[in-house]
């Protein structure tokens, strides 16, 4: 619960990308992904440019390629589905190495592969360069309803409380010689899940009362409300703007 909140996807750094205001980065991500999704799949050159844009950001932020690759594994189930499409898709067919491949399926597989990869890498870059409080403050500045930001803030805090509490309970069980792993031991797991909820909730109540005692009135105080500098806006939106232009070009002429 103390300072220095970081999360699994965060890579500490002091690069240009790290220093940009959170709300500009979130807006940039949304614009970039919108451009990627709007691009017709046949415009392969456009996806090359998107990848180049992402590579520039990753290079500036100093995010290692291996780190991004590892996190991209989250796509794998959908990629497997995509790889299936050329074989279960419908006519017209082309034959490739003796197999019958659906043309529509092949195009769909490429669409998913290209767009999902661009989207995942862009999201990873946001998460890697932005601390959680900055993202929350950014959501606040982008006029996301206060209740949502407040719940998100509490959620982020409780995540640590819950996982720590879960760890302690597991250690306590192991210390008493019981380590439920099998399906028929689900009752033990289930009761610990319930107990975990109650324990964390009652701790949460105490935290809330402590916050009220210190003057909490429903929103967290923000320290920085100054309008973003023009330089920051240009830096944050350069790549998304490029993506937008590419998408328009691809839509107009790329088919």
């Amino acid at each position: 619960m103390s300072g220095g909140h970081t999360h699994a996807l965060h890579v500490h750094g002091h690069s240009v990308v790290h220093k940009l205001p959170g709300h500009l980065k979130v807006a940039g991500l949304v614009l970039f992904v919108a451009a990627v999704v709007a691009t017709p799949a046949r415009a392969i050159w456009a996806f090359g440019l998107y990848a180049a844009g992402l590579a520039v950001v990753a290079g500036l932020a100093g995010i290692p390629v291996r780190f991004i690759g590892k996190r991209m594994l989250i796509e794998v189930p959908f990629l497997l589905f995509a790889l299936l499409l050329p074989f279960v898709g419908e006519a017209p067919y082309v034959s490739l190495a003796g197999m019958r491949i659906s043309e529509a399926g092949l195009l769909a597989a490429w669409t998913i592969l290209a767009k999902a990869s661009c989207g995942v890498v862009a999201s990873i870059l946001l998460a890697a360069t932005t601390e959680i409080p900055e993202i929350l403050a950014g959501m606040n500045r982008l006029r996301v309803p206060t209740a949502i930001v407040a719940i998100a803030g509490f959620m982020v805090r409780y995540l640590e409380v819950i996982s720590d509490e879960m760890g302690r309970m597991r250690v306590a069980m192991a210390a008493r010689g019981y380590e439920p792993k099998m399906f028929w031991q689900i009752k033990a797991l289930a009761t610990s899940a319930g107990a975990l909820f109650i324990r964390s909730y009652e701790r949460g109540e105490r935290v809330y009362l402590a916050m009220v005692a210190r003057g909490f009135q429903g929103t967290m105080p923000t320290t920085d409300d100054s309008p973003a500098a023009a330089v920051d806006i240009m830096r944050a939106l350069a790549i998304p703007a490029m993506a937008g232009i590419v998408a328009v070009l691809a839509l107009v002429g790329g088919r």
Binding site: F154, M155, R157, Y158, L159, S200, G204, V207
Partner: peptide, 11 residues
């Protein structure tokens, strides 16, 4: 309710 909502969200 907001702390409880945050807790359920974390859960």
């Amino acid at each position: 309710q907001i702390p409880l909502a945050g807790l359920v969200a974390a859960f």
